[in-house]
Design a protein around this nucleic acid. Sequence first.
DNA 1: ATCCTAAACAGGAATTATTCCTATCTAAAA
DNA 2: TTTTAGATAGGAATAATTCCTGTTTAGGAT
Lengths: 137, 137
Amino acid sequence: MNVDRLKEKITSKGMKFTHQRLVIYRSLCNSQDHPTAEMVYNQITEENPSISMGTVYKTLESFVNAGILQKFRDDQGLMRFDPVMETHSHLYCNDSSDIRDYKNPDLEELLHTFFKENQIDGFEVEEVSLVIKGKTK
Amino acid sequence: MNVDRLKEKITSKGMKFTHQRLVIYRSLCNSQDHPTAEMVYNQITEENPSISMGTVYKTLESFVNAGILQKFRDDQGLMRFDPVMETHSHLYCNDSSDIRDYKNPDLEELLHTFFKENQIDGFEVEEVSLVIKGKTK
DNA sequence: ATCCTAAACAGGAATTATTCCTATCTAAAA
DNA sequence: TTTTAGATAGGAATAATTCCTGTTTAGGAT
């Protein structure tokens, strides 16, 4: 994604376009590993040593609120950030801390149908995602 | 569950039977709310003021390793403990921090079949659970 | 019943992810 | 160019969890 598209993405949500936001969002878009705030910080400070940890946290949170990023907790309790906004599940590797994306429209349809037909007493389902644990082959 | 059955549960895993372990495990068995270590601590210290926080953490972890409890992270990153060992999913209330159990054999069968028929490239599924978010009605 | 020892415990310090605070700075609207 | 609301840097504060150390104890051996 080029700078203009990144800028458009940020400003379209009513956020000021700053160098820090550009760098942080670009880092997310280029990563496949659902980085933590610290991983983002380590990556961007190689080229931008003056960006502070607090800014990384605050910026990531702003992006989540603006609907530009998703966040979720991993098993160690660390917050992970994800630029993929469509509904999808995650594959957790039992042998490492790898987390891969898993997206399957058939599965989504299956679950949607299931919960439509199987109402839960006293609970209204709004969102379902899967935690899939296993081994990388 | 009476004291003898609780004791049996603990010693059958090769663990020494101590007063602290009895009290902590009993607290878990009597709760429905997937308590955190701190919630367990607060509950048991009413009657057992000398049990330390460190012991609660260490004991809960020992129980998990022994296969007596399950643990999982909630959205706030807190570790939750659960005496229900069978596979089941959780209902997360969006309006509060309530977490209810959800168990449905049909759903488990459905998912089992799905992942048998839909192998994931480079990944071997071992365990699937659902994160179900929504509203308590 | 008493002794012995590995394991468990209490109490508190240390660690670590994350949030909070405040003075300074800057994007972008006027 | 000026103005100012919002953004940032840097560091202090917070809070869940782990670690450390000296003391105690469960339960097998004597």
